[in-house]
Design a protein around this nucleic acid. Structure first.
Length: 556
RNA sequence: UGGGGAGUCGUUCAAUGGUAGGACAUCGGCCUUUGACGCCGAGUAUCUAGGUUCGAAUCCUAGCUCCCCAGCCA
């Protein structure tokens, strides 16, 4: 289906490179996450693009952790990132790398620049460096240490590595141009002294490369042909090229694209981390989060996420995509793949007064009308059933095709029943319904072919299984909370609704953790994928069914 | 107002000098043993002003608006 789809500007650029014979026609990409948080759907756009392009062009894609800041990184994040990318169906084979694999090489490269008089050790403090850097309009001025000799720089830099200087006392900087209009070129810091335990190199190093110094060389070392990254690195490109050129090593082509943003959520790692740390959500994998682990738990199929991403395409313009677009892809996927089951979320007991007291019948139900191969299952039916509380209305509007005074409805797969009486408690609340059924309507249609407009779902009381159902809504009430000063005030307090007393059909007792279903007339739900205590079933609402009835109701 | 980017329906992606199109969203209608799905239909867009051209979203000029950059973060 995506065959006729227009190629994006990146693929066009790669086509052109191949046509020219650039990189000998090779295509080799990479996804370079920093292991300082969980991956979200924005990252999925980035790694999906890299892996997909490699696949489409018959090339390869590496996974490389850009682990240059040990104070923020951990193996927990490394493991989570690996799990998420695998879940999305991508494979880097044996090409799993870390920037920390290259620390030694990077150190040697730095020495090369020092020897060439293109890097120097600076004793200025952090504040001073900032002052000397100038502003967006004013050029910077050279550090007093800028003209140290290569010999002295070599000695000092070695001492930095050997731990002879305290944290923050010195840095290694590239000697480029303090007056450059591009601030990234004003003698950027290459190394800082940082006595921090690294998740892979342990305490072997007390100096760590800056991302800008590590990134381009890492791509070079891996013979990457196309370094795809987001827009904000556009003006770092000249710096990366400067490093590569002055080192005299292989240079990839960097192409920048716009990050993915979604409405009604936040996407920055800092904000996601805040939500986790302040307990606004239960963790990185809370189903309300835009993280891949959250979406997995919530029941979003990887294929639906991929479909969404391919529909969105890739461009350079800043955009915020309506989250409804994602939900569309999820619904479309689940509509084809999710088995239909009946679940009563807010149960109301119905006694079918003319149905034999101890009788149990079984009806054959189609598992998925969209997929014949999904087969059928047997549904037990008895005198007492649960129906949805909202499927009864004492004083219904005209177009309410459900239970109410004098109304007959179809019980999906079973019988027609007609409302007779509502039993109320002392508070006047309806606690039970009395109905009669038409034995002629077995299988939910009658010989006389009469029309019954309403069809409702139900669960047999003695066969029902208990379940907890968690209904999710948008995490934020506003379109772009990311741009708001007090963004946390836009958190949707009703983003989670927990229903404790749900009753579901017995077949669900055998459901696999993480598997998805359509609760008919409600939405798509996924069984909790984490170990739970007790035998209660916990379902997460993946996405509700579209509801034109609810929509028209709201209008009136 | 230094440098780097970007402006096309409500949203997003296309149209690469030749009829501005798709998807989502919205609004109608049909269908229905899920008020789902499906089907049919509708409306709404080229940032502005000039210029080149038979013809401009596309090329030129001048503006305007938005995003990114002054971490020893990535």
């Amino acid at each position: 289906m995506s065959e006729e789809k227009k190629k994006d500007f990146i693929r066009e650029a790669i086509d052109a490179d191949i046509a020219e014979g650039r990189f000998d026609g090779r295509v080799h990409t990479r996804f370079p996450p920093e292991p300082n948080g969980y991956l979200h759907i924005g990252h999925a756009k980035a790694f999906g693009l890299n892996f997909q392009i490699a696949e489409d062009f018959g090339g390869k894609c590496n996974l490389r952790f850009d682990d240059t800041n040990p104070t923020k990184e951990s193996t927990e994040f490394v493991d989570a990132i690996i799990e998420d990318i695998k879940w999305m169906g991508y494979d880097w084979e044996d090409r799993l790398f870390y920037a920390s694999d290259y620390y030694e090489t990077l150190f040697d490269y730095a020495m090369q620049l020092i020897d060439a008089g293109k890097a120097y050790v600076d004793d200025l403090s952090g504040d001073e460096i900032r002052e000397y850097r100038g502003t967006l309009k004013e050029p910077g001025k050279p550090s007093p240490w800028r003209d140290r000799s290569p010999e002295e720089n070599r000695t000092l830099f070695q001492e930095m590595r050997d731990g002879k200087h305290p944290d923050g006392s010195k840095v290694l900087r590239a000697k480029i141009d303090m007056a450059s209009p591009n601030i990234n070129m004003r003698d950027p810091v290459m190394y800082r002294i940082l006595r921090a335990h690294h998740h892979r190199t342990g305490d072997a190093w007390c100096i760590y490369p800056m991302y800008d110094w590590a990134h381009g060389q890492s791509d070079s070392l891996e013979s990457i042909t196309h370094s795809l990254c987001s827009l904000e690195f556009e003006d770092h490109r000249p710096l990366y090229e400067w490093f590569l050129e002055n080192l005299g090593i292989y240079a990839p082509r960097q192409i920048e694209f716009a990050r993915l943003k979604l409405t009604n959520t936040v996407m920055s790692k800092r904000k996601l981390r805040t939500l986790v740390e302040e307990g606004v959500v239960d963790g990185w994998d809370d189903p309300r989060m835009p993280t891949l682990s959250g979406m997995r738990r919530r029941g979003y199929p990887p294929a639906a996420i991929k479909d969404f991403l391919s529909r969105m395409g890739v461009a350079k313009r800043d955009s915020v995509i309506d989250i409804a677009q994602l939900e569309f892809s999820v619904r479309e996927n689940l509509n084809k793949n999710a088995p239909r089951v009946m679940a009563v979320l807010k149960p109301l007991k119905v006694v079918i007064t003319n149905y034999p007291e101890d009788q149990v019948e079984h009806f054959t139900a189609i598992n998925n009308p969209e997929d014949e191969s999904a087969g059928t299952r047997e549904l037990p039916f008895s005198r007492e059933i649960y129906v949805e509380t909202t499927d009864f209305w004492e004083d219904p509007p005209k177009k309410f095709h459900r239970l109410g005074p004098g109304r007959e409805v179809r019980l999906k797969h079973a019988y027609y029943i007609t409302f007779q009486e509502a039993i109320k408690n002392d508070a006047g609340e309806v606690v039970e319904l009395r109905c009669t059924y038409d034995p002629e309507s077995r299988g939910a249609s009658t010989p006389d072919g009469r029309k019954v407009r309403g069809t409702i779902h139900w669960v047999s009381v003695p066969h029902a299984k208990d379940a907890e159902v968690r209904n999710y809504d948008r995490l934020f009430l506003t379109d772009a909370p990311d741009t708001e000063e007090n963004w946390q005030e836009s958190v949707n307090p009703d983003a989670l609704e927990t229903l404790q007393g749900a009753k579901v059909e017995p077949s669900l007792a055998e459901a696999d953790p993480g598997s998805g279903y359509q609760f008919m007339r409600h939405g798509y739900y996924a069984l909790e994928n984490k170990p739970t205590s007790g035998d209660k079933l916990i379902f997460h609402r993946t996405v509700p069914l579209r509801d034109s009835w609810g929509k028209t109701q709201k209008k009136s």
